[in-house]
C-alpha cells in the first residue's frame, strides 16, 4: 500500500462525492449545479489512483479496506439513495386553476394578492406585463421561472402543485422582488 496515494485517492473521491451531491440534490442553493463537471473529474482521478494505492506492495488487509468501503458507502448513500427515495408522487386533483397576474413596477395586481390552491391542482398563471420594463414570473420551489417578457406581452406558465406549504411568487429578475414584486402562494391539503 502507498500511504500518500491511499490518503489522497480517498480524499479526492470524498471531495468529488460531496461536490456531486451538492450539485445534484442539495436544495441549499441553485448555483451549486456548476460544481458537477469538476466533481466528476475529481472522482475519476480518485478512482484511477485507488487501485494503485491499494495494490502496491501486496493485497490490502481488512483494516486498510475499511476507509475505502466507508467512502464508497457514503457515495452510494449520498448519490444513489435520492434516486430511489424521490418525493412521493402526487395524484392530480383534476382541477385547473386559472390565475391572471398583471405586472407593473413594483407589484403584481397592485397589491400582490395571496393565491391559494389545493395539493394536486394544475395551476395556470398568465402574466400580463403592463409595466415599462421586462418582467417575469416564478413560483419559487414549484416550478422554473417563465421567460422574460417585454411590456405589453403576456406569457402563461403551467405546473402542478406537488408540495404543501407556503411559497413565494415573485418576479425573478434580480432586484424586482426586493422592490415589492412578491406575494404568497399557499398550497393547502386536499379538502375532499
Amino acid at each position: 500500500m502507498d500511504r500518500g496515494m491511499y490518503i489522497s485517492s480517498h480524499l479526492l473521491i470524498l471531495f468529488g462525492i460531496i461536490g456531486t451531491w451538492l450539485s445534484l440534490y442539495s436544495n441549499i442553493s441553485d448555483s451549486f449545479k456548476e460544481l458537477a463537471g469538476v466533481s466528476i473529474l475529481l472522482i475519476v482521478l480518485g478512482l484511477m489512483t485507488l487501485p494503485v494505492a491499494l495494490l502496491k506492495n501486496g493485497p490490502p488487509n481488512l483494516k486498510q479496506l475499511s476507509p475505502t468501503a466507508g467512502v464508497l458507502i457514503i457515495g452510494v448513500i449520498l448519490i444513489g439513495l435520492p434516486i430511489f427515495t424521490g418525493p412521493p408522487r402526487v395524484v392530480e386533483s383534476g382541477r385547473i386553476i386559472n390565475i391572471t397576474l398583471i405586472s407593473t413596477e413594483w407589484a403584481f395586481n397592485q397589491t400582490n394578492p395571496t393565491i391559494q390552491v389545493e395539493l394536486g391542482d394544475r395551476v395556470r398563471i398568465t402574466l400580463i406585463n403592463n409595466g415599462t420594463i421586462t418582467h417575469s414570473i416564478e413560483v419559487v420551489g414549484l416550478g422554473p421561472p417563465s421567460p422574460k417578457i417585454n411590456p405589453g406581452e403576456n406569457i402563461t406558465i403551467e405546473f402542478v402543485a406537488t408540495k404543501e406549504g407556503t411559497f413565494d411568487y415573485i418576479c425573478p429578475i434580480p432586484g424586482h422582488a426586493e422592490f415589492g414584486m412578491h406575494g404568497k402562494f399557499i398550497v393547502t391539503s386536499r379538502t375532499k
Partner: peptide, 19 residues
Amino acid sequence: IALTTVWGFYINPNKVIGL
C-alpha cells in the same frame, strides 16, 4: 480552498430579499 470554493457558490435561496 475547498471551503471558500463551495461557499462562493452559495447564494441565499430566499428570492424575496434583495440581491
